[in-house]
Structure formats: structure tokens, C-alpha cells
Design a protein around this nucleic acid. Structure first.
Length: 410
DNA sequence: TCTGGGGTCCTAGGACCC
DNA sequence: TCTGGGGTCCTAGGACCC
């Protein structure tokens, strides 16, 4: 039997801001991006009391809480804090999984003896994070990741919940299915129509019907209802290679002009290409995503003849898709992503021109690494319209301090 | 006054082949 | 007048997560 610990930082971005700026402590604050059309990334607990939630736009948030203080997110601070937290966690066990910027799983099987018990270890983790990073977290401990995540969610902020083997059936019996990690609104609705509302009911439901209704997921759903979950902690450095690399942006205003749309696509293509090159990845499929002002969102992809991470090739493919799209209205969001990823593939550059091209890309990337992203950039990016890398929003909470999810920040 | 950005996984339906 | 059947690959969309 394994023992898994889940650490969930409390209102992470907001707590970091309050730690850095005493004037914000005890106050309702919301961390937002700097772009015009932004949303609340994290609300402090003081703000949550008023109903301020992640995903609200400024106006909704201000309406819910008139005294709300908006703080523009500072990615550097969150990354620093995240890295320091992971350093602390690694002193407790080598099996630390960086699940997101503010969550981690640790396999603490066999790591208890210096602390006497799981609870002793958890209290030591919380103490060290508080001392060394100045933040509080909620910790859950259970025999697997599913239940550890459930446990860390049960007491916030600054919680500690341990689910032992014997307590599992009683805990799950009346627990609503949507509280389980992986069961969202749609699944909850479907299950509800089948008369399944609690984990207890889910765990007893005929496997055949679940399989018929939900396919391959059905098998796992029933097991989840019983608290059974087999996925293991993936230690830092042993993550699978990324399967796609993408960037998207909501434009400051809806745009119809093709020329400006193309500039944004070029900028996004360069962001994607640079990140792929940084990680030695090449992809064979380019996907262009478009969102209309009414939020209708769609995508088209193009398969390339060979793997690439060259901005020019990504841009050309994205433009090809754009031209085939016949846009119906102005555009709200544009996205470019590269998939069909392989590492270390791609032919050696046989032609002089290709070799020069690779050298050029290397040189540009090197300058950008030294001086911040997009210091050196493509000709048309320098014109007005789609600026050279300013106005980055708040980092995605899915960001990880390791692996390809590492998005460059200034 | 509207509604971010980064991913993974699964599925339906069509293309294509034998 | 009616037109198989299976397998695989690909694309687009959706559910879910932080």
C-alpha cells in the first residue's frame, strides 16, 4: 500500500502578492492579467467571501465586491515561489510530481520514520513551507492520488486531512460525484440522469452500463466511486515528452483586418517555434484556432510533409489554414499550436540555405534568451498592430517549473 | 462592462484500403 | 434495384484539468 501526499497552495497567486505587499494583507484582492480583456486568475480568501471567483471578468468581480483590489499578476514571483516550494518538498521524498504551479504530489511511502507518522510528516512540510516561502497550503494524505487530492480539498485554507484505508467507504458513500477529480459538470449531469449522484452509488453501479454509456472511461468511473485509482506519482525529470506546444491570445479588440490577423499569427507562430526549439522538439501538424466575438470557437489543422520547429514553416501552414477558412465575422481570439511532436527527429539540413536558416534561428533564440523574449524578432512584428511580446497575461496555473510547459517570462 | 491561456485524453465520423 | 464488412488513420470537437 502506497502513501500519497497532495500539496495544494492556498489562493496561491493572491497569497504571494499579499506576502510581498503588507498593504494587501487581510484585504479582498484579485490577481488579473494586464491585458484589456482579462479575468480573475486567483481571488484572496477575503474576496472569495464576497463571491469573487476565478474566471470572472473585472466587472463581475467588482460588482460582487466593490472594495476589491485588482493586482496585476507578476509571473516571476509565482515561479520563484513554486520552485522554492518544490525544493522544500524534495527534501522529504525523491518522488515529487510537479502537477501544476501550485500543486504537487509526493509519494511518501517509506518516508515516515523521521517524523513518526504521516501526520508528523505533513506538519513538518507545512512548517517548512511557511518558514521558507511564507505561504500556507492544504495537505491531503491517502493511499492514492485521487483520494489525496480529495483530502487536500476538504479543509481550506491551511488544512490537513488524512484518509486511511478503513475510512474510505464511509467517506465516499454520500460524497457527490462531482467532488472527484476528473468528474466535471457534463459527467455529473449524465450520471445524475442515470440516478447516480454519490460516489457510493457510482461504485455499485453495473459496470456494463457505465461502459456502454461512457466507453473506456466507464470502467474507471466505477473504480473511482470505490476510491480505487492506479495512476502513480511521476517524479520531476521523468515526465513524458510534451505532445503539443501552443499559444493563443484574446485580441485587445475584435479584428477583421486580414493584415493585422496575420501579424498576430506570425507572433504566435514565433512563440510556438521558439519554445519548441528551446526543448528540441519538432512537430508535423499545425493547428489554427479562431474564436468569434460570440465565442464560437473552431480549429483546423494542417499536416506537414516533415517535422519542423521553424517559425517560417509554422507561420506558412497557419496562413494556409487561415486562407481556407473564409472568416464569417471579426475575430476575438487566435491560437497556433504544433502537435505530432517528436524529439530529435528531422533530417540533417542538407542544403546550405537550410543550414544558414538553422543558424539564424539559433542566434535569434540565443539573443531572446539573454535579453527577454522577442527582443529579436521578425520584420513585420516590429510594425504596429501586434507588439513584440509586451502585454503577456498572468501565467497559466497549469504552468510547470519543469518540462516544456515552462513558458518564458520576463 | 461582458467572459484567459496552457495542456491531455477520448470520440464520432469520414477517408481509404483490402 | 440495390449496393459488404472490417481495419486503420486522420480530423474536429468536446470534456476535463490547473
Amino acid at each position: 500500500m502506497r502513501l500519497i501526499l497532495h500539496v495544494d497552495m492556498n489562493a496561491f497567486f493572491a497569497s504571494v502578492e499579499q506576502r510581498c505587499n503588507p498593504a494587501l494583507r487581510g484585504k479582498p484582492i484579485a490577481v488579473v492579467g494586464s491585458a484589456k480583456r482579462t479575468v480573475v486568475t486567483t481571488a484572496s480568501y477575503e474576496a472569495r467571501k464576497f463571491g469573487v471567483k476565478t474566471g470572472m471578468n473585472r466587472f463581475e468581480a467588482a460588482r460582487a465586491c466593490p472594495s476589491l483590489i485588482f493586482v496585476i499578476g507578476n509571473n516571476r514571483k509565482y515561479i520563484d515561489a513554486s520552485v522554492r516550494i518544490l525544493e522544500v518538498l524534495k527534501t522529504f521524498s525523491p518522488m515529487v510530481e510537479a502537477y501544476s504551479i501550485d500543486e504537487a504530489f509526493i509519494d511518501i511511502t517509506g518516508c515516515l520514520s523521521p517524523f513518526g507518522s504521516a501526520e508528523g510528516l505533513a506538519r513538518a512540510v507545512k512548517e517548512r513551507i511557511r518558514e521558507e516561502v511564507g505561504l500556507t497550503c492544504s495537505i491531503g494524505i491517502a493511499p492514492n492520488k485521487l483520494l489525496a487530492k480529495l483530502a487536500s480539498d476538504m479543509q481550506k485554507p491551511d488544512g490537513l486531512v488524512i484518509i486511511d484505508e478503513a475510512g474510505i467507504p464511509r467517506l465516499l458513500e454520500d460524497l457527490p460525484v462531482n467532488e472527484l477529480w476528473g468528474i466535471g459538470p457534463r459527467l455529473t449531469e449524465h450520471l445524475g440522469r442515470m440516478g447516480v449522484r454519490t460516489c457510493g452509488q457510482l461504485g455499485r453501479f453495473p459496470a456494463g452500463i457505465l461502459r456502454e454509456r461512457f466507453g473506456i472511461i466507464g470502467e474507471r468511473l466505477r473504480l473511482m466511486g470505490q476510491g480505487i485509482y492506479s495512476s502513480e506519482v511521476v517524479p520531476i525529470g521523468q515526465e513524458e515528452e510534451a505532445k503539443s506546444v501552443g499559444h493563443s491570445t484574446t485580441l485587445p479588440a475584435d479584428i477583421s483586418e486580414k493584415a493585422i490577423i496575420k501579424k498576430y499569427i506570425l507572433k504566435l507562430s514565433e512563440m510556438v517555434g521558439a519554445r519548441a526549439r528551446e526543448h528540441g522538439l519538432k512537430g508535423s501538424k499545425v493547428c489554427l484556432t479562431v474564436r468569434y466575438p460570440d465565442f464560437y470557437t473552431f480549429s483546423r489543422q494542417k499536416t506537414l510533409a516533415s517535422h519542423t520547429n521553424d517559425t517560417r514553416a509554422i507561420y506558412a501552414a497557419a496562413l494556409y489554414i487561415l486562407e481556407a477558412m473564409r472568416l464569417r465575422t471579426a475575430v476575438r481570439l487566435l491560437g497556433v499550436s504544433l502537435s505530432g511532436i517528436a524529439k530529435g527527429v528531422g533530417q540533417l539540413a542538407l542544403f546550405e540555405e537550410d543550414r544558414r536558416r538553422e543558424k539564424l534561428l539559433e542566434a535569434m533564440d540565443a539573443v531572446n534568451r539573454s535579453f527577454g523574449d522577442y527582443t529579436v524578432t521578425w520584420g513585420t512584428l516590429m510594425d504596429e498592430g501586434a507588439g513584440g511580446g509586451d502585454d503577456t497575461g498572468v501565467i497559466s496555473p497549469a504552468w510547470r517549473p519543469v518540462g516544456v510547459k515552462r513558458v518564458n517570462v520576463k
